[in-house]
């Protein structure tokens, strides 16, 4: 584990009776940046995060967080936002944030000050002394997010942070996540909404059925799937199937034109320009030529689709 490594999981397995929730999972996260922890429902994301946070013990394997064998020993340096949110209904927003910050090691006065500062910064100053039960769901969620970061943690773990937030608040949270990353904090967030991961993450870890399926950057993830080219135009479109590097040619059912439209799947390393040259040489009057990188959504479905379907059936 290097000095810059804030989290290291080594061969971690968690079983409940006969069921294996997480199997032989290993990865490490270096300081700084945003890591997306992806996976379909029931993939073992929350179990993994709970093990990282020391709430449950792994059945086997080792976890080191900020150099400590148990996250509770360094809890003051970790912030956590669970997937399902809740606060004490009878406490005010400021009290809730301050109490949870105190449990993370802050003293009473600093916790209170930090709570009020954050509430002001995120537009909730007027609700600082309102009871949680009097806040809207969105506001309460914001309060909980603030409670997770009020003590200024180095490592912030967010479990499905965007769920339940409206588009405006999702944007606010995205900005906050970027801001915290810019401050040099390390963020890990789990999600199954790929757009957020695409926009935010420097690195992705994908698990399915309790096992790691991918660990790398967004670019690396996209390279896992072949590139596709959408072509529409008049002329003989069958000529593309004979060009080297073309794996398959299928009709493009999404195209609304009344002329021919196809989707070409390229082999790894094949150059889309060869298709363009062939179109000119074959007198195809092009109306569309679109090289498409595979989306993270497609990568996700390709890597975890089987496990997700099994989970649904189960």
């Amino acid at each position: 584990m290097s000095d810059r490594c804030v989290l290291d999981l080594s061969c971690v397995t968690k079983t409940y009776g006969d069921f294996t929730a997480v199997r032989d999972l290993s990865f490490s996260v270096n300081a700084g940046g945003i890591t997306g922890f992806l996976g379909p429902n029931g993939a073992g994301k929350t179990t993994t995060l709970r093990m990282i946070l020391g709430m449950i013990a792994p059945s086997s394997g080792e976890i080191r967080v900020l150099g400590a064998p148990n996250a509770l020993k360094v809890r003051g340096r970790i912030g956590y936002l669970p997937e399902e949110r809740g606060l004490y209904r009878k406490m005010t927003a400021a009290q809730s944030i301050a109490y949870l910050a105190q449990l993370k090691g802050m003293n009473g006065a600093s916790a209170k000050k930090s709570a009020l500062n954050l509430l002001e910064r995120f537009g909730l100053k007027g609700f600082a002394h309102a009871r949680i039960e009097a806040l809207s769901k969105g506001m309460a969620q914001k309060v909980q997010i603030l409670a997770a970061i009020a003590h200024g943690p180095e490592l912030i773990i967010l479990d499905e942070p965007f769920s339940g937030l409206d588009p405006v608040n999702q944007q606010v949270l995205e900005d906050l996540i970027r801001e915290m990353a810019n401050e040099g904090r390390t963020l890990i967030f789990s999600t199954h909404v790929m757009q957020h991961a695409e926009r935010l993450c420097d690195r992705l870890i994908l698990i399915a059925a309790g096992e790691k399926r991918f660990d790398g950057t967004l670019g690396e993830a996209r390279h896992l799937l072949p590139r596709r080219v959408r072509i529409a135009g008049r002329g003989d479109l069958s000529l593309f199937s004979k060009i080297p590097g073309v794996v398959s040619v299928t009709p493009d059912s999404d195209d609304g034109h009344d002329h021919g439209a196809i989707v070409i799947t390229l082999a790894e390393g094949a150059d889309p320009q060869a298709l363009l040259r062939a179109a000119f040489e074959g007198n195809v009057a092009l109306e569309r030529f679109e090289v498409r990188e595979p989306s993270l959504h497609e990568v996700f479905v390709a890597l975890a689709g089987d496990a997700a379907r099994e989970a649904v059936v189960r």
């Binding site: 946070l53 956590y80 669970p82 399902e84 949110r85 809740g86 606060l87 949870l100 409670a147």
Partner: peptide, 17 residues
């Protein structure tokens, strides 16, 4: 029961045993 049903317990257990 309130802490468990509104999942507060998870936040607490990330800070205390």
């Amino acid at each position: 029961i309130e802490e468990r049903s509104n999942k507060l317990i998870e936040v607490l257990l990330s800070s205390v045993t």
